[in-house]
């Protein structure tokens, strides 16, 4: 079942309505977020990034990922969940982002990775519309695992709509 659903989601890059999906979850403060595991390229330890001038604070800069220059986004400050303390568990989750420009590789700084859950589509609850820093557009849904709420992110929306636009608006140049 799992392998089947993997196959399907790989083709569509979306979980079809009647299929399950696997999500990698990570911790930001007290919250747990998840991204489609098929989008995760790798998880690496936090490494100092080269800042990019005139970009919002949550763009930590760029790092060298085996010869590729990859931008790093601090999700904590992006979602305004207090300042990040870079510690031993701080990691970068490197994900593939699809958008108009094709496939891009980006890294999200998170407090630590948590788990991998297989989520049944039927248990996925739509996010209610709420104000605040995380627009419901960027959330694919909410799911309850062991009585905890896990927020499943839509990385494409988050990057293409949320972050890009913020940079556009805030860009000095």
């Amino acid at each position: 079942m799992t392998s089947e659903s993997t196959q399907v989601s790989r083709e569509n890059d979306f979980i079809p309505a009647d299929e399950d999906g696997q999500f990698l979850t990570f911790i930001l403060g007290n919250e747990e977020y998840g991204v489609d595991i098929l989008r995760v390229q790798e998880i690496k330890g936090w490494d100092k990034a080269t800042p990019i001038p005139n970009t919002p604070d949550y763009i930590k800069g760029v790092i060298n990922l085996r010869g590729t220059v990859v931008p790093i986004i601090d999700l904590r400050s992006c979602f305004n969940i207090g300042p990040t303390e870079y510690g031993k568990t701080t990691v970068i989750v490197v994900v593939k982002v699809l958008g108009a420009k094709g496939e891009r590789t980006m890294g999200f700084v998170v407090d630590g990775v948590s788990d991998v859950y297989t989520v049944e589509k039927s248990k996925l609850k739509p996010a209610p519309d709420f104000g605040g820093n995380v627009s419901s557009d960027f959330i694919r849904g909410l799911v309850t695992v062991d009585e905890k709420m896990v927020i499943l992110l839509d990385v494409d929306q988050l990057v293409n709509r949320g972050i890009e636009q913020a940079i556009e608006a805030g860009s000095v140049h």
């Binding site: 001038p53 005139n54 760029v62 590729t68 220059v69 931008p71 420009k101 891009r104 980006m106």
Partner: peptide, 9 residues
């Protein structure tokens, strides 16, 4: 930089 990010002034 544009490969994975965007043009920066």
């Amino acid at each position: 930089l544009e490969t994975n990010f965007r043009h920066v002034g």
